[in-house]
């Protein structure tokens, strides 16, 4: 019962902050509510017994990506309501499209034959030990390739953002 209440609170928080991300005029408010959304999703990971992923999620998203986004928003001086007022037609069309997509996905999930489980089976599944063992034995090659991806992304970011002479 208690976990259901926590689920409701976390879900309401994440949906509300996601809506603020989309509908807020000021980009700073969007970034800050995105942080709230990411923390509530980390709470969901903890509820799902994925402790390692929850910690990695907080470190990567709230630590790295949010700093990058806030830094860029402030560097580009976008912290004002600089977005020009567009016609309401695009807004209405986008909302209708998103709502229709959500209805379609929910209906397809409802009628599909996906295995939907009632409760988790293994409680020690998401600990650092098990995930790390899987990462460094079965998934060693993708892990190393992702490090190459990081190096290339780092070099690419530096090259792209460098001021031309």
């Amino acid at each position: 019962m208690g976990s259901e209440i926590i689920f409701y609170i976390l879900s309401a928080l994440s949906i509300f902050s996601a809506l603020v991300v989309v509908f807020s005029k000021n980009p700073i408010y969007s970034v800050l509510s995105l942080i709230v959304c990411f923390f509530s999703i980390a709470g969901h990971y903890v509820m799902l017994n994925a402790q390692f992923l929850a910690i990695v999620h907080i470190i990567v998203y709230a630590g790295a990506i949010m700093v990058l986004l806030l830094f860029t928003v402030m560097l580009l001086n976008l912290n004002k309501e600089s977005e020009p007022h567009k016609s309401n037609l695009i807004k209405v069309a986008a909302i209708v499209t998103g709502g229709l997509l959500m209805l379609t996905l929910l209906a397809s999930l409802r009628t599909s034959q996906l295995p939907v489980y009632v409760s988790p089976t293994d409680l020690g599944l998401g600990t650092v030990q098990t995930v790390g063992k899987s990462l460094f034995t079965d998934y060693l090659l993708p892990f190393e390739i992702s490090s190459i991806l990081f190096i290339s992304a780092m070099i690419g970011a530096v090259v792209l953002a460098k001021k031309e002479r």
Binding site: P27, E83, K86, T97, G98
Partner: peptide, 19 residues
């Protein structure tokens, strides 16, 4: 599903590339 649809909605109607 709801979170994904909100993201799609935002991509469709925001004009700011950072958003």
């Amino acid at each position: 599903t709801i979170l994904f649809s909100i993201g799609v909605m935002g991509v469709l109607f925001r004009r700011n590339a950072i958003i």
